[in-house]
Design a protein around this nucleic acid. Structure first.
Length: 270
DNA sequence: ATGGTCGTTGCACGA
């Protein structure tokens, strides 16, 4: 299935939500523009834009029919939401009473009646690295934000790069990843805690088998060797997840000239 | 995974 293949077939489409870590929107703009012109999802969440708000090419997306919101900082992080079905009530960052977070990693907006977050969860780097503690704290802060501000019975989707493999099906070699970030029990427990609040991994609802990934390291020919991880999710509340009719990863977007190391994850809702 | 690349920016670090 190439990006030229119509998906979904047509007519019944009400809402398609996409999440895509683009690993620099500046470097990726030609690929992102091309992909949007071929796929035209109603809502797309981007991560790792790696630019300041002033550099965000809103006009490119406006010309394609999208309203946009961007929360960036500069050379690292940065998240965006593009929507063809309205974009209101934008919240950039945490907007709580907690400590300042220098990293631009989360952005909220309401699109077509759905509360949407674009999230770039910290990588963690290593289990003994302070960044791993930051990662777990960041995930708990997300859970607290959901508890305090959002209603699990509403239609809501937290979309993004979670930098966690929920279980061993999501890792190309669980043996090779023992002792690493992305697969540790505290990270997996943090993800389960978000599920306990009321979120569901929409892709996993529709695809139960292993070996289905959304990220492949640039190094070592990992993509062509099939060495990937599934770490990018559309996490939806039950009322929204129940509307989902399918989900897929566009592996073709990982091929070709100057690809991101992540592929877009797409969920379709009736 | 031993590392193997690509992105930022600068001569190193993050993923």
């Amino acid at each position: 299935m190439g990006p030229q293949t119509p998906w979904p077939i047509d007519s019944a489409t009400v809402l398609r939500i996409v999440t895509w870590n683009v690993n620099s929107l500046k470097a990726r703009l030609p690929r992102v523009e091309q992909w949007l012109s071929e796929n035209g999802p109603e809502v797309i969440c981007l991560q790792e834009t790696k630019m300041k708000d002033a550099a965000f090419p809103a006009e490119v997306f406006t010309a394609m029919g999208y309203e946009t919101a961007h929360h960036g900082q500069g050379q690292w992080n940065g998240v965006a939401i593009l929507s063809k079905v309205g974009l209101t009530d934008v919240v950039a960052g945490w907007d709580d009473d907690g400590p300042e977070d220098a990293d631009a990693r989360i952005l909220w907006a309401t699109c077509g009646g759905v509360r949407v977050a674009s999230a770039y969860v910290p990588n963690g780097r290593a289990l003994d690295d302070p960044h791993y503690t930051y990662k777990l704290g960041w995930l708990e802060r997300l859970r607290q934000t959901l508890l305090r501000r959002e209603d699990p019975s509403s239609e809501l989707a937290v979309c993004g790069d979670f930098n966690i493999c929920p279980d061993d099906r999501d890792v190309w070699s669980p043996e090779a990843w023992v002792g690493n970030t992305h697969v540790s029990e505290p990270e997996r427990e943090a993800l389960r805690s978000l599920e306990a609040w009321g979120l569901e991994d929409v892709y996993r609802r529709h695809h139960k088998e292993g070996g289905l990934y959304s990220f492949w390291d640039y190094r070592g020919g990992d993509f062509h060797q099939g060495r990937g991880l599934r770490i990018d999710f559309i996490m939806a509340t039950a009322s929204l997840a129940d509307r989902s009719v399918d989900a897929r990863v566009d592996r073709d977007a990982r091929k070709g000239e100057k690809p991101s190391d992540h592929a877009p994850v797409i969920a379709q809702f009736d």
